[in-house]
Amino acid sequence: MNAVNFQLKGSVVTAIVLELYQYDPETFATDLKDRVQQAPALFEHSAVVISMDKFDGSYDLINFITLVKQCRDAGMQPIAFRGGEKHLQSAIRSTGLAWLPSTGARNNDRELEAPAATPEVEKVVETVVEKVVEEKVVHRASKVLTRPVRSGQQFYAQDADLIVLTNVAEGAEVLADGHVHVYGALRGRALAGVRGDKSARVFCQSLEAELVSVGGVFMLSDELRERCWKQPSYVSLDDDQLTISKI
């Protein structure tokens, strides 16, 4: 049997869309840099599709090679153009980027207000991103339980770690968006990263759990009995597989 070098697959990729309304080579570059400054982590090295769907300016002013360079200078990685009139396609292909057909009237995009333009600078370019992410550091204090978690009780630490100083009984459930620490015997259910944080972990002094889960991947006691049972251990997620390790 021949070794296969590759496989071609269709896939849906999330990318930032730069919806171009008008284009003025000078103001475009500065406006773009300003916008990137607002959320550097979002835009840095991010794949960008430049959409001509809603372009309403003069095509004469567009030099696509310059446009792509300006995007790269701002820290973005343009991967393709989308839409625009047919006669532009050869000019677009000369940039080396792909051309994607227009997706039709998709007016449900959330449009971001451009920053208030100063009166002396004429507003010529507006960028539109599909998703607006506000960057801020959120830190919530961990939830600490000092008494045993009893059968039938459920505790959830939202946006934080959960720390249990003693036992978690059979039939009890502890959940956290972050890590779950149990400094006693874990006999009930413990779920870390319940909103999808795959780097979350479950730590315990004695692993006797009914169920452990990280980022939605779970394991039941039957399987756990074969690994680190009644030993100090932690549960983590590696390549979407739960790993039980001794501490």
């Binding site: 008494r147 045993p148 009893r150 059968s151 039938g152 009780q153 009984a169 059979e170 039939g171 009890a172």
Partner: peptide, 13 residues
């Protein structure tokens, strides 16, 4: 034992 554990939880809540 499990039912006792449950009742202890109710005592605490």
């Amino acid at each position: 034992v499990r039912d006792s554990d449950r009742i202890l939880g109710i005592l605490q809540s």
